[in-house]
Simulated assay, not measured.
Amino acid sequence: MTEKGKVRVVVVGANGRMGREVVRTVVKDPGLQLVGAVDRSVEKEDVGVVLGLGETGVYFSDKLGETLLKSEADVIIDFTTPNVVRDNIYTSLEYGVRPVVGTTGIPQEDLQAWDRILQDKGIGGLVAPNFAIGAILMMKFAAQAARYLPHVEIIEMHHDQKLDAPSGTAIKTAEMIVKERQRMVQGHPDEEEKLAGARGADFEGMKIHSVRLPGYVAHQEVILGGIGQTLTIRHDSISRESFMPGVAMAAKKVMEFTGLVYGLENLID
């Protein structure tokens, strides 16, 4: 039964590592109501029982469209993988359900297409490379600092199961920095890589390096160099709980605007 005044949420990939955290967050948040949970690995079991939250009356399903129709959802939250998120979002748009997406590696053409559909339907959607508030502040501070220290390298470190490199957060950080400084060539003009890729990927003249190791969750350093000084801005997500305040905020804020917003920083003052 729908609770008045609450945003009705379906979590996609609800039995995954991020999905489980999202489910817990939605269940505990007084402004949200869990009305559906989609996952291919579990079916017809109470979500709360599987996750140790007690009975919720919401059961796992492997059919997204059917779940959206029956639940009358307002929002889907999707932290699946790049190879399935595309179909999930087009399904949600077909049913007029607002997407909140944490999956990275989505092509620009898909983002543009989703924006057009959302505009036509008069509803909002959000795609964010990172939902940790501290990470958003790190990106903002780095972009501001690059006005004065334009020589920049980005090092991002993630667990070894992450599929895309560099991370969406690193790319988004670089995009924000580029808005504050022009493209420039860094390092010595005669620099030579003895091993291909040793200097990292090039993005508008700055270098991005990706580390993938067990033990990491999500971490990033932005190192800015100047004459006789360096500035390092670093953010560490120690656990996936770090993303949840941003996810909850996004699920509520997405009800307030039209079209696709890319990046949680656009929802923060």
Rank of each mutant, 00 (worst) to 15 (best):
D202H: 01
A143H: 13
Q112V: 05
D164Q: 15
Q186T: 10
A142C: 03
K172P: 06
L126T: 15
Y148W: 13
A174K: 02
G125N: 03
E204N: 12
A113K: 05
P129L: 03
P129T: 00
K162S: 12
H159E: 10
Q186E: 10
H159G: 07
R181V: 10
I117S: 06
I117Q: 04
Y148S: 07
R147S: 03
I133R: 02
A142S: 14
I123C: 01
K121I: 01
A196N: 12
S167V: 09
L163D: 09
T169G: 04
P129F: 04
Q144P: 08
Q186K: 05
A128I: 04
E153F: 07
I154S: 03
E192P: 09
M184R: 13
L137I: 14
R181E: 10
H188G: 08
M157D: 06
A201L: 06
K207A: 11
Q182N: 13
M184T: 10
D115L: 01
A174F: 04
R199C: 07
A145S: 05
D160N: 05
T173D: 00
Q119H: 05
I208H: 01
D202N: 06
D160Y: 02
P129R: 02
L195P: 15
A142Q: 02
A135C: 03
A132L: 05
L137H: 11
I136G: 14
M176D: 13
V152P: 00
E191S: 13
G197R: 03
L195E: 14
F131N: 00
A201V: 07
Q182A: 13
Q119E: 07
G124E: 02
E193I: 13
M206P: 06
Y148D: 05
G187E: 07
K162N: 15
V185L: 08
H159N: 12
L111K: 15
H188N: 09
A146P: 09
F141N: 11
G122K: 14
I208A: 01
L195M: 06
R199S: 09
E156C: 09
V178L: 13
F131G: 00
A143R: 05
L126Y: 07
V152L: 01
F131I: 04
A170H: 09
A170E: 04
G122S: 05
A170Y: 05
D190F: 11
G125E: 01
G122H: 04
D190H: 15
I177M: 06
K172Y: 14
Y148V: 12
G200D: 00
E193M: 06
A198G: 14
A132V: 04
I123P: 02
L137E: 08
R183F: 15
I136Y: 07
D120N: 15
T169R: 07
M206I: 01
R116E: 06
A132R: 02
V178Y: 13
R147Y: 08
K162E: 08
A113S: 06
M157W: 03
E153Q: 08
G187S: 10
Y148A: 13
M139S: 10
K179R: 09
G134W: 09
Q112D: 08
Y148L: 15
G205N: 04
E193A: 08
A196E: 09
K121E: 00
E192K: 11
K207F: 01
